[in-house]
């Protein structure tokens, strides 16, 4: 029998009203997340990959119970999030976001900010001191940092402070939204290694949200690729990146910078290699922002960018179909292959 997932999202939908229509006119409704479902097993690192506007941050906020879905549910060990959420349950899911400066109070010493969640959850002073020492050791920060203010320490150290604060309540699930994107590559490697260590040491389950497939490849066990608010492909990381099925996943992988220098890639070569990107009409939309003004669900959202799109793709939206054990893609052409 299959183990019950630690966290499961089913049919998540969340819309925003676009503000750009004008000062007084209300903009059209945009479905940032449009029917996203996934399940993460305990101890697993699950990557959620997509470009700006794909809805990945909105998914992260719904899973970490900081945003209510319009439809769909998130369940922790089979029990759906309720509102208001009991304190003890809220502690089970913690989140770390990209902007470490914005996530900390600039006027409070770091020590105080680490202590706060423990105070809120009624943990005594002696126990708090023990826990904070343990947390500092976990994330590799010196005690002297406790007396500093967030503005006085480096970005990498702040990201560790956020990690420590998120871990303070011993959560089961840690949601990380682009936690390393703002860091230099050497510091990024330190934080990625730290996350991998924490995962092993504390049997932590991770929802790791990122635009960087390279980092996801290193840290995660499974990955879902998000496009225009829907999952277009998911599966084991090695399989999705090694043999991507969806044309969007393939385009994302092709667009990655090289690992090592090879033959000089000229513009012509790169465009020939990525026809689905090159033929996009820049007059209508920028590439990164798919047209979601029509939330009626007609057609595949990627069809406008896809070189292989057929009339079927423009007529009906593909659903996720299983390709092999655990590997799914939402593409009419993949199913036909």
């Amino acid at each position: 029998m299959q183990q019950q997932p630690l966290i499961s999202a089913s049919g998540l939908v969340r819309s925003y009203r676009a503000s750009r229509a004008g000062l007084l006119r209300r903009g059209p409704e945009v479905r940032a997340v449009d029917g996203v479902s996934f399940a993460i097993r305990a101890g697993e690192a699950f990557g959620l990959v997509g470009e700006s506007g794909s809805g990945k941050t909105t998914v992260g906020r719904m899973v970490s119970a900081t945003l209510r879905p319009d439809a769909g549910t998130v369940a922790l060990l089979g029990e759906p999030f309720a509102e208001p959420m009991p304190l003890a349950r809220r502690a089970k899911v913690q989140a770390v976001f990209q902007d470490s400066l914005g996530a900390l109070n600039p006027r409070l010493r770091i020590g105080r900010q680490l202590e706060e969640p423990l105070i809120v959850h009624g943990i005594g002073a002696a126990e708090r001191r023990v826990r904070i020492d343990g947390l500092l050791a976990d994330v590799g920060l010196p005690r002297s940092l406790l007396l500093r203010y967030p503005g006085e320490v480096s970005g990498g150290q702040r990201q560790r402070v956020l990690l420590a604060r998120a871990l303070a309540l011993r959560p089961d699930l840690l949601v990380c939204d682009e936690p390393v994107s703002a860091l230099d590559v050497s510091v990024q490697a330190q934080v990625v290694n730290l996350l991998a260590d924490l995962k092993t040491r504390h049997a932590l389950t991770l929802l790791f949200i990122s635009h960087d497939l390279r980092v996801v490849r290193h840290l995660c066990d499974r990955v879902a690729v998000l496009f225009a608010g829907r999952i277009v492909e998911s599966g084991a990381v090695a399989e999705v990146i090694g043999s991507p099925a969806h044309p969007y996943t393939r385009a994302l992988i092709r667009a990655l910078p090289a690992d090592r220098p090879g033959p000089r890639r000229t513009a012509a070569r790169a465009i020939a290699a990525a026809p689905d990107l090159a033929t996009q009409d820049l007059a209508t939309q920028d590439l990164a922002i798919p047209d979601r003004a029509t939330p009626d669900g007609a057609g595949c959202a990627f069809a406008a960018r896809c070189a292989a799109a057929t009339p079927t793709c423009r007529r009906s939206a593909p659903v996720l179909r299983s390709l092999s054990a655990g590997h799914e893609a939402a593409c009419h052409l993949v199913a036909a292959r």
């Binding site: 590559v185 050497s186 990024q188 490697a189 990625v192 290694n193 991998a196 960087d212 390279r214 992988i253």
Partner: peptide
């Protein structure tokens, strides 16, 4: 060498990324 080793590679994932200590 530290900079090159700390770059995550899509084609060659390693269990751990090398990193440069300190800053």
């Amino acid at each position: 060498r530290g900079l090159i080793d700390s770059l995550p590679q899509i084609s060659r994932p390693a269990a751990r990324l090398a990193s440069i200590p300190g800053r």
